[in-house]
Computed example of a mutant assay.
Amino acid sequence: MEQKEIQFRKKRELGVIISDSFEFLKLEIKPISRLILIYVLPFVVLYAFGQVYLQRNVLSAIDLTDQEKLMANIGPFYLNMFLFLFFGLFIQSLLVGTYYSYIEAYLKLGKGNFNLSDISAKFFANSLLAMGANLVFAVIVFFGIIMCFLPGIYFANTFSLLLIIFIYEKKGLGDALSRSWKLVNTQWWNTLILNLLAIVMIWAVSMLISIPTMVMGISKNLFSSEFTNPVDYPQWYWIVTGITAAVSTLLMIIPFTFQAFQYFNLEERENPTINLNDNSITE
């Protein structure tokens, strides 16, 4: 029996986009996992350590009842927070650059017609493209949130296809922004549902993993007469916190997959192609 191959460029309804996204991840989980293990996971581990450090050594040092000490620590706090957010943006760009490099090879060469060396030559350049696009996207959403929060949501959804367009079409950032705006606004609410669903999935898995830490935190501070500094939490608490951060980061592959399928769905609706074999999965 021949291997199943997902056809990306195809008109799909919302439910089919979701099911085909998970079908693609299921079929390609081994090579994708190998890519992430080699190129992304070491940085994700560093990111998890960074989050633990930030929570344990930076946030716990802030005493809201001591205004003088608070003002003395506010500068280092913002510096650490900025560096941590920037590193998180770098990790996300590395993940999306690696993953979309795989999808790009899958689309252009066909399933089974390429190996990891074909991707390794492109993932660094695509990660740099993703970093630039992510920075622009973050600035746009940030200013949208400052304006009144709702514009931030609108911009985040409208430009959610920016990364896949910028990496796949390679026609410049300005063109990618306008293309994302144009395509998403043809199915704005469907795109919003996909993005929100992916966020809820990541949140649910993260909450499930972090249940032991939440229970311990509540028991330490709600049922105790004295406040317990997070520095004094047991070692396993910080291990689970780090694992939660790493898993939630790697699960960003879900919204990236949804967005890729939505992009090709909207692209096909805008510029239909003649396809004699109009099946989303062929055997």
Rank of each mutant, 00 (worst) to 15 (best):
M1F: 12
Q3M: 12
K4M: 13
R9G: 07
R12I: 09
G15C: 08
V16Q: 13
I18C: 05
D20K: 05
F22P: 03
F22Y: 13
F24W: 10
K26V: 12
K26T: 14
I32T: 04
I32F: 05
R34N: 12
L37P: 00
I38G: 05
L41D: 06
V44K: 07
V44A: 10
A48L: 06
Q51G: 15
N57E: 15
S60G: 08
A61Q: 09
T65W: 04
E68V: 15
L70N: 04
I74K: 09
P76Q: 08
F77Q: 06
N80S: 12
N80K: 09
L83Q: 09
L83N: 05
L83W: 13
F84W: 11
F84H: 10
F84N: 11
F87L: 08
L95W: 02
L95D: 01
Y100V: 02
Y106H: 04
L109A: 09
G110R: 03
G110K: 06
G112E: 03
N113H: 13
N113A: 12
I119D: 00
F124K: 03
F124T: 10
S127Q: 04
L129Y: 07
A133H: 03
N134D: 03
V139C: 09
I140D: 01
I140T: 14
F143T: 10
I146C: 08
Y154V: 14
T158L: 07
S160P: 05
S160E: 05
I167N: 02
G174I: 04
L177W: 01
L177K: 03
W181A: 08
L183W: 06
N185P: 04
N185Q: 11
W188M: 07
N190D: 11
L192I: 03
L192C: 07
L197S: 10
L197F: 05
V200Y: 06
M201E: 01
V205C: 03
L208Q: 05
V215G: 02
V215R: 06
I218D: 11
P230M: 05
P230C: 06
W238M: 04
I239V: 15
I239E: 08
T241N: 10
G242M: 07
I243C: 04
T244L: 02
A245I: 10
V247S: 04
I253P: 00
T257V: 10
A260W: 00
F261N: 01
Y263A: 02
F264K: 02
N265I: 08
L266R: 01
E270N: 09
L276K: 09
N277V: 13
I281W: 13
T282M: 10
